[in-house]
C-alpha cells in the first residue's frame, strides 16, 4: 500500500529544478506529485512519478543525489472537511505526519494527497481500519 517517493537534494542554483524536470521528461517519466522543501541554501525536491525505479536510475546517472522513501497516497473527498476528517482519524490514533502535499491531477471527484509518516506501516493499518482509500503503486502508474 506504500508508494515510492523520490527525494532529491538540490542546491539553490538557478535552473536546477528545470534541469531535473527536463531530465525526467527526456526519460519519459511523468511527475504525478511534486513538492519542494526549501531552506536558504538548498532544497529537497520530492516527487511521485509513474516509473520510480527508472527515474532514480536516470537521476543517479546524471550525478544527482536522490533517495527513495516510502509514502502513502490517500484519496481525499473533494468536499469541505474532506481532509479534516482524515487528519482527525490520524490525530486520534496518534499518527505523526512529517509532511504532506497534493497530487498534480485529480482522480474523478477525489483529491489525491501524499503523506509521509514517521511510522508508515502503522499509518497504513490505521487508514485501512477506518476504510480510508489508499492509492496503490499500480494506481499511481495508471493515473
Amino acid at each position: 500500500m506504500k508508494i515510492k517517493q523520490i527525494s532529491i537534494f538540490l542546491e539553490n542554483r538557478k535552473g536546477r529544478l528545470y534541469d531535473v524536470c527536463a531530465l525526467l521528461g527526456k526519460n519519459d517519466i511523468n511527475i504525478r506529485a511534486l513538492n519542494v522543501a526549501e531552506t536558504e541554501a538548498f532544497g529537497i525536491l520530492r516527487i511521485v512519478v509513474n516509473k520510480p525505479d527508472a527515474a532514480v536510475k536516470a537521476l543517479k546517472d546524471a550525478g544527482i543525489v536522490a533517495k527513495i522513501t516510502d509514502v502513502v497516497a490517500i484519496e481525499v473527498d473533494d468536499r469541505p472537511g474532506g481532509l479534516t476528517d482524515i487528519l482527525k482519524v490520524l490525530a486520534d490514533e496518534d499518527v505523526n505526519i512529517e509532511y504532506m502535499y497534493g497530487f498534480v491531477e485529480k482522480s474523478s471527484d477525489r483529491a489525491l494527497m501524499v503523506f509521509r509518516f514517521d511510522d508508515v506501516d502503522k499509518a497504513v493499518n490505521i487508514l485501512k481500519k477506518h476504510s480510508i482509500k489508499i492509492v496503490t503503486e499500480q494506481g499511481v502508474r495508471e493515473l
Binding site: 527525494s7 537534494f9 531552506t39 529537497i44 543525489v65 522513501t69
Partner: peptide, 15 residues
C-alpha cells in the same frame, strides 16, 4: 559536497 549514498531524503539530515 554531499556524499550521495548517505542521503536519506530529509532536510533535517542536511541541516
Amino acid at each position: 559536497e554531499l556524499y550521495s549514498k548517505i542521503f536519506m531524503g530529509e532536510a533535517k539530515q542536511i541541516d
